[in-house]
Amino acid sequence: MKTSDEITADDSTLENTQDNVESNKPSANYAEIIYNGIWKNNPALVQLLGLCPMLAVTSTVVNALGLGLATLVVLVGSNIAVSLIRNYVADAVRLPAFVMIIASFTTCIELIMQAYTYELYQILGIFIPLIVTNCAILGRADAFASRNPVLPSALDGFMMGLGFMAILVALGAMRELIGQGTLFSDMQLLFGDAAVHWKWTVFESYPNVLFAVLPPGAFIGLGLLIAGKNYLDEREKKRLAAEKAKEGPSTSKRVRVTGQVS
């Protein structure tokens, strides 16, 4: 019994892609897409894709938000573009084509950030061009956008990007709070002069905990976030099981002649 449960749990991601394969017809379930992107199939917490920028730049909220937004825009754009050309690209060249599309969107974002948020662009450095190699984006292009119409693909890109950004910001907030005792410092880099006073010093005269600012802190922070998600999932599963048990055994009763009677 237990093993079959485990197998279904493990297969949830696989099943999901199979769903996508099957849903070539334009009957995509939007609620499912939203739930997948934000929670069930979250690129950062479940698929563990795009870890490199995620661990490297999430030392403050503003860095995380900047990279999260950039990734979100690229993800939506590439999903739409890939979905548009999905019927015209031969299978053999589809991956290079996708990478070209993603690269052009990344270049756009890079130039935009260079124009409007130059300091943030400098802080994020190499990790903006590296969005091209973010597996989450190529993964969504290949697994979803190349098999679905434009609207579901755009929504999928948006929700996956949102899920990724949410975790980035959560990790950034965690590390900034533990590392420097502040939140939302330097938000003017992204939102202009209006945001100069957004900085919230949570702890006065706080000794900087360099460990949280340095990359090892990101690993531990991400580990804690994943553990938190698993804990919530587990609790939800238990709650559902308890509810089911309360309802009593299912109405259709079949007579078993072999095996254990539970």
């Binding site: 000794p207 900087n208 905990v209 360099l210 460990f211 949280a212 340095l214």
Partner: peptide, 10 residues
């Protein structure tokens, strides 16, 4: 190691 990396001054 954690405190050595985090709080070099004290």
């Amino acid at each position: 190691a954690i405190v050595l990396v985090s709080f070099p001054v004290p």
